[in-house]
Design a binder for these strands. Structure first.
Lengths: 215, 215
DNA sequence: TCAGACATGTAAGTCGTTACATGATTCA
DNA sequence: TGAATCATGTAACGACTTACATGTCTGA
C-alpha cells in the first residue's frame, strides 16, 4: 500500500497522520505545511521536506487527500492538497487511538548520570549548561505567550496566528479561530510548564551538589 | 572510520558515546549494558541489541575499548569490554561538548492541537488519556524513589542499585557508589518533576475546556 | 537586476527497531 | 528434561535528516 515511492520504499505513518490532521484544518501546500510547523508547532512537532512531499504523495495514493495544481497566470505553481471524506474519517480514527508513548532519549540526562564517576565539578557544569539552554527557550515562549494572549484578547489576528491557522474562505468562522487559538495557547503552556520544571530541577541539583564542590 | 560493518555501514555516534560512558563506569558485556539501561535508565535512555553489539565492535576498532573473551570452564562465553585510556579521553571530551537539544515530537500534543477543529469533547478525551498515562508512570517512579532513598539511607545496596551500578573489584569504593546513587536519584527526580508538570498541565486544560463541553 | 523568498522535489546518508537465528547453562 | 535465562549476533525494515537540484516570482 505504501510502496509506490521508488527511492524511499516506506513512508512514516506518523508524518502521514500529522499531515492529514493539518490538512483537516485547511487545504495547504507542502511549503505551507513546512512553514506552519516551523513557525507555530516547533515546540512539539517537526517535519522536513524530505518527508513532507513523499507523504503528501502517499496520502493522495491512499485516497485520503486530493491534489490540485494551481497554475493561474502570474501566480507561482502551487500544489494544494485538501483532505477527502475518507481522509477525515481516517484522521478521526487516528485521533481516537491511544498515542504511542514518547520515547525518551535525553542526552543531557545521560551525560549527567555518567558524570557520576567524575569530579562533582563536571556534573555541575553540565547542569549549568542545561539550565542556560532551558532559560533561553523559556524566555522566548513567555514572550510569545504574552503577545498572543494580548492579540487574542483584542480580537486581533496578527501574522503569527495567521501562520498557524490559515483561514480558508469556506470553513472557518472567527469563533472557530478563537477556539483554535485557545487550544494553541494551551499547547504553549505545556511547553512552558515543562521548561519551568526542568529549571526548577536544575536548581535542586545545584543545591544538592554544591556542598561537595570542593571535594 | 565507521565503515567496517557490512550490513549496517554507519554506526550511531550517540549510541557509541553512551556505551563508552557506561564502560567508563565499569567493564561490561553487551548483555550487561542492555539490562542496565532497561532496568535503571529507561526514563531517559534506551538501547537495543541491534545497536549495542555493532557499536561495541566499532569502539574496539577505534581503539576506545578493549574486548576480552571470558571462556573459563563451566562459565558461559562472555565478551567483556573495558574502556581504554584513549576511550576515557574521548568520553571526557564528549561530556564537555554541548549536548544536542532534545528534538520534541510529542504525538499527544499534536493530537490535542489538531483536535481544535473538532468538538471540545474530543480534546478532553485526549487529555484524559494523557493524564492517566502520566499518572501511572509517576506512581511507578515515586515508589522507586522511596525505595531507593531508604536503601541508600540504610547503607544497603539492593539488587536494583547493583544492576545500575555494577561494582567491579578494583575501581569502586562504597563512597563512590554512594555518590553515584545520589546522582541517579537526582535523574529520577527529573523524571518525576516532568511528570508532575504534565499532570498539572492536564488539570489546567480540563478546567479551561470544561465550560465549553456542552457547546 | 539580483537577492531573497517562494516552491517542489530527490538521493544519499544516518539512525533506530523488530524479528530472527543460534547456542549454552542453570535450576526446578 | 525442558523452560527460563544467559548471551551474542545479523538482516530487514522503517523512519528521519541533510544536502542538493531546479526553477519562479517579487520587490528594493
Amino acid at each position: 500500500m505504501y510502496k509506490l515511492d521508488i527511492y524511499n520504499l516506506y513512508m512514516s505513518k506518523k508524518t502521514q497522520y500529522a499531515l492529514l490532521g493539518l490538512l483537516n484544518m485547511s487545504p495547504m501546500s507542502g511549503y505551507d505545511i513546512k512553514k506552519m510547523v516551523d513557525v507555530g508547532l516547533s515546540h512539539f512537532w517537526n517535519e522536513n521536506y524530505g518527508q513532507i512531499y513523499p507523504a503528501l504523495n502517499s496520502l493522495v495514493l491512499d485516497g485520503l487527500a486530493e491534489k490540485s495544481v494551481n497554475q493561474g497566470s502570474g501566480k507561482r505553481k502551487r500544489h494544494t492538497y485538501s483532505i477527502t471524506e475518507e481522509g477525515q474519517a481516517a484522521f478521526r480514527d487516528w485521533l481516537s487511538q491511544p498515542s504511542s508513548p514518547v520515547v525518551v532519549r535525553n542526552e543531557l540526562q545521560l551525560k549527567f548520570f555518567l558524570s557520576g564517576s567524575l569530579p562533582t565539578e563536571i556534573s555541575i557544569q553540565i547542569i549549568n549548561e542545561y539550565r542556560d539552554q532551558q532559560r533561553a527557550v523559556l524566555e522566548e515562549y513567555l514572550e510569545s505567550e504574552t503577545y498572543l494572549r494580548q492579540s487574542v484578547a483584542n480580537g486581533e489576528y496578527p501574522k503569527e496566528i495567521q501562520d498557524v491557522f490559515p483561514r480558508n474562505e469556506n470553513t472557518q468562522s472567527a469563533l472557530e479561530v478563537g477556539k483554535q487559538c485557545n487550544i494553541f495557547l494551551l499547547t504553549l503552556r505545556h511547553g512552558i510548564i515543562a521548561l519551568q520544571g526542568r529549571i526548577q530541577w536544575c536548581d535542586e541539583v545545584i543545591n544538592n551538589l554544591e556542598p561537595d564542590r570542593k571535594e
